[in-house]
Structures are given as C-alpha cells and as structure tokens.
Design a protein around this nucleic acid. Structure first.
Length: 460
RNA sequence: GUGGGCGUAGCUCAGCUGGUUAGAGUCCCGGAUUGUGAUUCCGGUUGUCGGGGGUUCGAAUCCCCUCGCUCACCCCA
C-alpha cells in the first residue's frame, strides 16, 4: 500500500518542541512589553468577508489573498465570500469601525496572530506567519506624541529580546513629499514610485538606484537624481545632530515644514521617553512601501546583522477605517514579523537551544517503587515545578538519554539506597554533576537550581 | 505573475565520456554497560535514483515532456 507523503505546504514554519519553546518565549517577551506600555489584547478571526478585506487595496494584495470556501458552497457553484486575512491592520480597521461606540479612544490595542499570503515561497518568506502588532487609534485627532511612544516600545521589546544592538530608524512621509514638491515632482504616484526606489538604496546600492531613476519610466534628469540621492543619504548620529541636520535642510513649502516640525517633536520626545540616543536615528531613505502611511515611518535593524534587514516596521496613517465608517480615525502602529524574525535569528545562530518546559524528570530506578515516584512527582508539582515521571520500566541509561534528548536538564533518581536514607539523587545533565539531596530540602534546592538555569544564557 | 538553478536513503551528498548487486557520512534502533545521558566501539533497518515516454544489448547517467523544490524580480513581516 502506498503511503501518503507526510509533508507540509512550502512557506509554513513548523518547529520541533525545543524550538517551539524558544519561539513562544519570543512571543511572550513581545506580549509582556506591549502590555507594559498599556496596550490591550485583541484577537480577530483568521477569516473575514472578502468585501471587508479587499476594499482598500486593488491588484497586488488580491493576488496574494487566499479565498476560503466550504465544499458545499463550491459544489453549488458559489463564489467564495470569505478570505484569510493578509495582515492585522485591515481587520483592525474593520474592528474599530464595527465597535466604534464601545471602544475608548485613543484605543491602544496589541494583536499577536497569524496572517496568510499566497506568495511564491522564498528564503525567509512565509505564507503563514505571525505578526505582532500594536496600534493607537485616535478619534478625529491623534497627537504626534504617540508617534514618539512607538519607538520607546520597540526599544523595550528588542532590548528584552537580547539579540544585540539595534537602531530604530525614522523618517517622515510629509517631509519627503514636501521636498519632492519643491523639486517639481508634484504627482503623488510619481513621489511614491521614487520613494520606493530610494528605499532600496541600502539593498541595491547608489549606482543601481541612480540608473533606475534616470531611465524609463522615471526619466528624471541627472542633476535632479543627484540631488535626491544626496538628500536621502542623510543619517543622524545623535538627537542634536538630527535636529541640526533638519535645520540645515533650508526652508520649504507648507507640507515640508509640517513634516519637519513633526520629526523634531517625535525625535525630542523619544529621548524624553528614555530611549538612548545611540538606538534611534533619522534616516531619510526609509520610505516604506505601503501607501497608507502619511507621516512618521519606522524601520528597525540589527547593527551587527544588516543582511537580516528590517525586523520591525510601521508608521503613521490618517483615516484608518475610511472604507468602513465616516468617522475620522487616525492611527500609528508597528508590526513585528515574528516568524521571519525567529527564522532569521536562528539562521544567524542567534537562537540557542532552549531547555524543555519540563523542569525535572523522575526516573524509574526500581519498578517496585513506582508509587513512590508518583508521590515524589505530586510533591514537586504542588510546589510549582514542571515534572514528568517515567511511566514504563526501562534501563536507567535509556531514561537519562530520553531526558537529554528532550532537553530536560534535571533528573531525579530514587533507588533503595536513597529511600533508606530519605534522600534523592539530583543530577544536572548540562553541568554533568550530581548531588545527593535530603528529601526535605529537595523542593528548595530544585527551585533555586531551576531559576539559576533559567536566568543564565537563554540566548548564548 | 516574470525569469534562472536543482531533483539519488529521514537529512547532507558521492556515483568518471552509458556497463553487472546504487554507495558514504549522519540520523534512527539494538548491544558492549541490569544505578547514569551527550563521547567511544560493534551490529542492524532505510531507496519505484521525482514521474512518464524515447534512444540503446544495457540508462541514476543521453533526449523530450511533466511534476516538485529552490533563487531573483514584483510586493512585503
């Protein structure tokens, strides 16, 4: 009989338990920090009505949407009226519009869920992946101070994740648009197209971008392209440097000045929120492809791993839910692509082997003493220690091997020697040492060893 | 959606210009070791050579088709 191949579709990430523990640890850290900043949890269904999902964006996203249809509906020749969400922002817009009268504004929500995109599989690109979003939605108005709060949260998250030094890079769409207008590039589509090219500066290099902008369909003249490239190369090294460089840009039109004053306030407030100056910077080549961003935009990169690219990005948008309500709902938010982040950190060797969520394994030294092992486990569990008991008799060496492969660090042996002395043999598989502990001290000893093990080197 | 590359054990791969029974490492299982894992030694399991067709006395090897995977572009986490 032919077996069905056990396989998953490409573009999904499925993990072995120890990696799953590491991944969940990452999600926990993100969630903890989102909550620390006063964000409220929200979940929305993976499926939405297609008219909800596809209002805003035309061709490009529609190509990537998975439609959902019951077999019954399909057999009757119906068209799918459901689809899988491709991000968390569109469902948020629907959610806020639907519950507008029951929500408190400014509405601060976080959402950590999976989204789906029918893309061609590629290295580090997924069809199913986690997004970890925070957004603040205002009613009619939302202070630019919220734009400054976002980087403080990013800073807290990535400091806590302990994956090395990082830089939160900021720019402002208004500043860019105003500046382009000053150059004579007035058409909004054209501005966006140029921004998208400029955004690739770090990836494709100066000469490639210059060539693209000079050629069809841009056909910009060489001196203008040089001015653009010079402008977008601006990077700051400190708050004072950023403010000085903004001042040095000369005067411009109304939109330009608005963007500049927003950036000034955002940068100044970020510092006041306690984010070290080394960890954020002005970067005028940050554009973000998504066209709904209107003001501040963010992109965060790891200093020591530039090849990973952006690990967190977002920005400011006006009128989030314009397709669903007449109310004006401006917002600002970011998204961390946790699946991609985890995958890339693992590729870069920055994710250590996690320990099992099982703290200790009670071995079965002597099959006749099985009830004693169950009693020991019950005692440990009551003390809050995650405990597994070997239920089937086997050679002790095999039980140790099981613990080792499962990532369980501590093993208990209770044989006739120990029973006679009211002690337990405690072995630390990683430290390669074992000690004999009095039964009465066992819980305290284990707890202190477990907390020591947990606090040292989760990310080697 | 557009354009390149690759398909041989679960995994990483070798297999000469076509030649007999398709191989290595790793992994997994058992033993050496009936109170001690990761190291060492010994033994064992594993394949429609992606699929179909063609050329040939003979195809993993050459040709055609097809499927799968993969990289880049578009876009994005």
């Amino acid at each position: 009989m032919a077996l069905t191949p056990a396989r998953t579709m490409p573009g999904v990430l499925e993990l072995l338990p120890l990696d799953q523990i590491a991944f969940q640890g990452m999600l926990d850290t993100i969630r903890r920090n989102y909550e620390r900043f006063g964000f409220l949890p929200v979940e929305t269904p993976v499926m939405e009505f297609t008219d909800v999902l596809l209002t805003k964006s035309g061709g490009e996203t529609e190509r990537q949407v998975y439609f959902v249809q019951s077999t019954g509906s399909m057999e009757q020749g119906g068209k799918p009226d459901l689809a899988l969400r491709f991000d968390l922002t569109v469902p948020l817009a629907r959610y806020v519009a639907e519950h507008e009268h029951d929500l408190n504004f400014p509405f601060r929500r976080y959402q950590i869920q999976r989204v789906y995109r029918g893309e061609r599989a590629q290295r580090g690109r997924f069809r199913e992946f986690y997004q970890c979003d925070i957004d603040v939605i205002g009613k009619d108005f939302l202070s630019v101070r919220y734009d400054a709060e976002i980087p403080a949260i990013i800073h807290a998250v990535f400091s806590d994740l302990a994956i090395g030094p990082f830089t939160i890079q900021l720019n402002n769409r208004r500043l860019m648009r105003g500046w382009f207008e000053g150059l004579g590039i007035a058409d909004g589509e054209m501005q966006m197209a140029v921004l998208r090219e400029v955004d690739k500066l770090d990836k494709r290099g100066m000469d490639a971008v210059r060539a693209t902008l000079c050629a069809e369909p841009f056909s910009l003249d060489a001196t203008m392209v040089d001015r653009i490239l010079e402008f977008v190369q601006l990077r700051s090294t400190s708050l004072a440097d950023a403010l000085a460089k903004l001042d040095a840009l000369g005067s411009g039109g109304e939109v330009f000045e608005q963007g500049r004053s927003e950036l000034r306030e955002v940068l100044t407030t970020i510092k006041a929120l306690g984010v070290p100056e080394s960890d954020f910077a002005l970067n005028l080549s940050i554009a973000r492809g998504l066209d709904y961003y209107t003001g501040t935009v963010y992109e965060t990169t790891l200093n020591e791993h530039p090849q990973i690219g952006s690990i967190c990005s977002g920005g400011r948008y006006e009128n989030l839910a314009g397709n669903y309500t007449k109310s004006s709902l401006p917002g600002v938010g970011i998204s961390i692509g946790a699946t991609r982040l985890f995958w890339q950190l693992r590729e870069a060797g920055l994710i250590g082997k996690a320990s099992s969520s099982v703290d200790v394994l009670v071995t079965q030294m002597d099959a006749g003493q099985f009830p004693a092992y169950l009693a020991l486990a019950a005692e440990l569990r009551a003390a809050g220690i995650n405990t597994e008991v070997v239920m089937e008799a086997s050679k002790l060496g095999k039980q140790f091997k099981y613990a080792d492969r499962a990532g369980i660090r501590f093993v208990l042996v209770l044989g006739e020697n120990e029973l006679a002395k009211s002690t337990v043999m405690l072995k630390d598989l990683r430290a390669e040492e074992q000690i004999e502990v009095a039964r009465t001290d066992l819980v305290a000893t284990l707890k202190s060893r477990i907390s020591q093990a947990g606090s040292s080197g989760a990310n080697p």
